[in-house]
């Protein structure tokens, strides 16, 4: 068992990495569950790309500085989210096409800015994160974003569920439809920005979507999905960090691949709607 415990007991950087991963997961995973249920799984991916130019501007201004890159990322993400929503509501273009257009513009701008200054190593930091080198400020930021996310989700839980399940009904009984949609997109952006510190812009989406997708094969209620997704993410954080420690693998991809493995196992063997449920159904009931 020492290989399981010792890395976390002996090395402070592993403890910080684990804390960072758990913090990101607790906030990002419920957001991911709602993204999945709203059929917006790829929106998270597009948003992650959209954040890049903001982080790049922050990096150009202040170097590898947490605050500047975070503010830049949040601003870029929110601009893309608001522009996307506005174009979808006021023109003939649908939300998916509108988002695709803006995130591609944003991504190209981001790559351009990163390559203007700095080496490829810096670009790799932004793209793949540095979970093994989280400082106090980064940890505080991650925990703050997660706290804010959980409080916000708890407050708008009812309108958010209704916006997913029956948006037309929500619009007919209240004015929540627009606000809850934009607030939710805001939470997506915030959590992606939190995620890219540790896991990088590209990997941050994985911690959102993979646990949610795995949970769909285990639970038939939102509460159940949230619980399963949180468990998946905790297990994959520990497994990924251990794999990274013992085998010298990059930590971000290792964590996401651990989550991906759990997703594939769920896909194959989960009790609800999985391949096993389809091809080896349990005996049916009388009524």
């Amino acid at each position: 068992m020492s290989w399981l415990i010792d890395p976390f007991a002996d090395f402070v950087f592993m403890q910080r990495a684990l804390l960072g991963c758990i913090a990101i997961s607790l906030g990002a995973t419920p957001v991911g569950v709602f993204l999945l249920l709203r059929r917006m799984s790829l929106t998270g991916d597009a948003m992650a790309h959209a954040i890049l130019p903001g982080a790049a501007v922050g990096y150009l201004v202040a170097g590898l500085n947490l605050g500047a890159m975070t503010i830049g990322g949040v601003v870029a993400g929110l601009i893309v989210a608001v522009l996307t929503g506005a174009v979808a509501r006021f023109t003939a273009l649908r939300e998916d096409a509108s988002l695709a257009a803006f995130y591609l513009i944003s991504l190209a701008l981001g790559v351009l800015l990163v390559s203007l200054k700095g080496s490829n190593v810096d670009l790799m930091h932004v793209l793949f994160g540095t979970v093994l080198a989280l400082d106090d400020a980064a940890l505080t930021l991650l925990c703050a974003i997660t706290t804010f996310t959980l409080v916000a989700l708890a407050m708008v839980f009812r309108p958010l569920v209704l916006e997913c399940a029956d948006p037309r009904f929500l619009a007919s009984v209240s004015r929540w439809s627009g606000p809850v949609h934009f607030l939710f997109l805001g939470l997506v952006v915030l959590n992606l920005v939190a995620g890219f510190q540790a896991l990088g812009t590209l990997m941050a989406v994985g911690i959102m979507i993979l646990p949610a997708a795995a949970a769909r094969f285990w639970a038939n209620s939102i509460g159940g999905m949230l619980a399963v997704a949180a468990t998946v993410v905790a297990v994959s954080s520990v497994a990924g960090l251990l794999a990274s420690f013992h085998a010298g693998l990059p930590s971000g991809p290792a964590i996401i691949l651990a989550a991906g493995t759990l997703y594939l196992l769920s896909l194959a063997f989960g009790p609800s709607g999985s391949l096993a449920a389809r091809y080896w159904p349990r005996a049916h009931l009388e009524a």
């Binding site: 309108p159 399940a165 029956d166 009904f169 038939n220 209620s221 159940g224």
Partner: peptide, 26 residues
């Protein structure tokens, strides 16, 4: 209707949303 029938929600909770005028969002 635009009800997402694949959404994981129970009948009781779904019907209870008809009480929105009494309970609102909170």
């Amino acid at each position: 209707s635009e009800v997402d029938r694949s959404f994981p929600i129970a009948v009781g909770a779904f019907v209870a949303m008809g009480l929105w005028h009494r309970v609102g969002a909170f």
